[in-house]
Design a protein around this nucleic acid. Structure first.
Lengths: 100, 100
DNA sequence: TATATTTTTGACAAATGTGTCTAAATAAAA
DNA sequence: TTTTATTTAGACACATTTGTCAAAAATATA
């Protein structure tokens, strides 16, 4: 399901958890902003569930990070986790950049 | 669900269908190689269902294209369809390329 | 046209994903 | 330690995805 790298240091969950804890916010507060149960956020932070893209702007606001930073982490996690096993991922990404 | 571009010309489904038809192969043949019902392949070619990554090498063989070419199309479709709406996709992809 | 082949559609079932809720485990504070 | 707050775990429900199968629609061939 996941590539090594992702659980090593750069999963979306760990990223969010670190931001949240550095702000001294309990799950309860952030989960309320996201309008989900704390258990969901707990699972997201442990990469047991996925965040939705709708959560990105809310997380950005409450965790005081730019939407861009949050979204980049979201994208990295999603792609590595979905496509990280593929042999030509790098080539595929380069192709997409050509058309963006 | 999808970006315009993807259904315009470069969806995985259309890509596969064009290859298959150019070889004069019926759905039946390719579906058999993939070990799925023809209806599944029909839906994949019309972007109503998704191909799995396990299908890539099989499609490469039977459609006589390199695994690399097929996989790049697979990756493009998946990412555009899943993440194409995001504002900082380009930045996210660039970040991934840095670590690959 | 009539027949055979290919392709599409939709009903169904199984597997997966997503959220709520309650209670248990853990950590922090009194 | 006792109490309170936070975090995690798991049962449940509901929606989505993915496949099979059978039959209809479309296309090609005799």
């Amino acid at each position: 399901m996941c590539l090594n790298k992702i659980d090593k240091m750069e999963s979306f969950g760990k990223y969010i958890r670190q931001l949240r804890e550095s702000k001294g916010l309990p799950l309860r507060k952030v989960a309320a902003a996201l309008d989900v149960d704390t258990s969901i956020l707990s699972k997201i932070e442990r990469n047991e569930r996925r965040a939705t893209s709708e959560m990105i702007p809310i997380l950005a606001r409450i965790l005081e990070k730019s939407e861009k930073d949050i979204e980049i982490q979201f994208i990295k996690s999603a792609i590595i986790s979905d496509l990280g096993e593929l042999n030509y991922l790098k080539d595929g990404l380069k192709e997409i950049l050509k058309i963006l």
